[in-house]
Write a protein that binds this DNA or RNA. Structure first.
Lengths: 343, 343
DNA sequence: TTTCCTACTGCAAACGATTGCGGCGACGTT
DNA sequence: AACGTCGCCGCAATCGTTTGCAGTAGGAAA
């Protein structure tokens, strides 16, 4: 009524036929005369008829909508992922409904609830930092509800995940530092309940090991919040010890790296001469800071594309058989900039 | 069926009452015995009953969903806007469905179509760069469909818009440079077919005028692409003249400012001692570069909040009366950092 | 003329929830 | 004993669309 949108009934009334006929005529069903089809289509066109997707959803219990759950839209990485998701979804006639959790578990749960009551066809999720218990996902998965996890992998069996090779990215980054002659490499790590943080740490450790460098536990510092400020403080403290200082930092993401850089500059240390530094994720700003920050680039757009492709496949086979669990791992790329090149 | 979600009918059958009774019991309608209410609620709880939002949408022709149309998610500014929108919408029980146009008009139109057929309650739009003809919006507005335009204002009458005061932001920035003792202020402007670019240039000119400084046309240079590289080249050229050099730059956005800074450093000029610089938009990196860049911050999050607040109001009065056209202009904020402070 | 196709079209139920209206039993009142 | 009232609940329509089944008319075959 609000829009006075024409319905099938309107067309039927006007043409003195039944709604069934109109419905069938519009979809070129056999058993409708060409004459009727023509008239129906003409009128539909004239009235600017547009099928009511809500009624369709109700009828078919399928909404052609997928729900995306991410920690924060404003993270450059996630916005590129969204972009990829949106692209594929749109091309396949699906809508994207979006919820950000702000890294809160409670928000994650309530988002899932409301999306479910909207008869979402499937979920694409990168769960919050607070999420350590996955039963809310497990329940859905057991019912055969399609979910693809991206970027962050849950501690569950038989899930479909799209991630990047965090281990390799970290390994490459640290290895690069080693090749540049840095030997005392510290690691500003992420929260250890996130698999990605763990992987990056492993890559770091293995690269050191491979270079015959023994890791120092006091040079592996967790930055749970991942803010610039936090990293600034931690780095300042780390380098306030005047005896034995690291000569390089591998940060688990670029903001942390940026905070560290500020701290180093503030202490009068030169980058990359005194301290080399590599970040992670290739944020937009990373090439513009001084010196430009070396970083590991994650293919956000591709992650989005891949995830939604997989999800759409899962949605469309759900006759009765289930799908195989899958782990798609996309490659990272090391972008070497000035912050880590001293040779 | 997919989820085996319990419906009102299931509860009714189990309890040997009618669906009407269940519905009313769940909503604490009068005229239902406490006993029945108790039993219904208990069972609903046990079955994990969740109302089917799609059925509700159909019944009430209201979907509690708003559609957001933006050029690109990956622009930091837009992602902050989305964040603000999301926040308000979620708090009011609304969902956000998202479409990006990639600055294409055709995409904008088709997005609107599909969203409409999903019985969207209203639109929040920042239209594409290609959009010069607004009839597709006009049609909806004439039908009384709620639309709020943000950031970009359409050439239509009686619309509700939320924008920022670009003129004032530029004026403040340049005025700040003047107060810091800079007298020879150049402007790296944006493409002059965009309203925002023009406004910023006007603010620049008026601030100069007000300070009694005569603008020099050769110090107002357009950066049509707005890339860092472009700005680097332009700035290098501008400062290669050894006779009469500007002592400050007002850039139409931060990426351009960053490029200029790189060029200045490369020429051995000190910031802010030799050249002061102010950018626009407060990109994420602006506080992290060296020296931290003074900039004009646009309240993206607030824009999002305001826009969706307005939209929700419009959605909820639509009994029959229309709403007033409105132009909310949000203030920018000058963030003074080191790049422009020499006193 | 009767029978049987065939080509069209309509009826009605269904998806899940809401809601105006009416039914029905129990009780109080006169 | 008759009537009114009140508390509790169910019927059925509705939102827009789809779809299995049944119905009708016309022509062709017997």
């Amino acid at each position: 009524m609000k829009l006075g949108q024409a319905t099938i009934k309107d067309i039927a009334r006007e043409l003195n036929v039944s709604s069934s006929t109109v419905s069938r005529a519009l979809k070129d069903y056999p058993g409708i005369s060409d004459e009727t089809k023509r008239k129906v289509k003409e009128l539909a066109d004239k009235l600017n008829y547009r099928p009511n997707a809500v009624a369709l959803s109700l009828r078919k219990s399928k909404s052609f909508t997928i729900g995306v759950i991410i920690p924060e839209v404003v993270h450059f990485f996630f916005s590129t992922v969204i972009s990829g998701i949106e692209e594929v979804a749109f091309a396949n006639g699906y809508n994207v409904i979006l919820c950000q959790t702000n890294e809160k578990l409670s928000r994650e749960q309530s988002s899932i609830e409301t999306m479910l009551s909207n008869q979402i066809d499937g979920f694409l999720v990168s769960f919050s930092r607070e999420t350590t218990d996955f039963t809310h996902f497990k329940k859905l998965l057991d019912l055969g509800f399609p979910i693809v996890f991206f970027d962050r992998m849950p501690d569950l069996e038989n899930t479909v995940n799209v991630t990047v090779n965090d281990y390799q990215g970290a390994y490459d980054a640290v290895n690069h530092l080693v090749e540049q002659g840095y030997k005392k490499i510290a690691h500003l790590s992420g929260p250890q309940n996130l698999a990605i943080s763990k992987k990056r740490k492993e890559g770091y450790l293995d690269a050191l090991k491979n270079a015959g460098i023994k890791p120092r536990p006091d040079w592996i510092i967790e930055c749970p919040f991942g803010t610039e400020k936090e990293s600034y403080d931690i780095t300042s403290k780390l380098f306030s010890n005047s005896v034995d200082l690291p000569d390089a930092i591998f940060a688990h993401h670029d903001i942390v790296a940026a905070g560290a850089m500020m701290a180093l500059k503030n202490l009068g240390l030169r980058i990359p001469e005194d301290v080399g530094i590599v970040g992670y994720s290739n944020w937009q700003f990373s090439s513009m800071i001084d010196p430009p920050l070396s970083t590991v680039s994650q293919p956000g757009f591709k992650i989005g594309e891949q995830s939604s492709k997989l999800l759409l496949e899962m949605i469309n086979i759900k006759k009765d058989q289930s799908w195989d669990s899958k782990n798609i791992v996309l490659d990272t790329e090391l972008l070497v900039r000035k912050s880590s090149v001293r040779i």
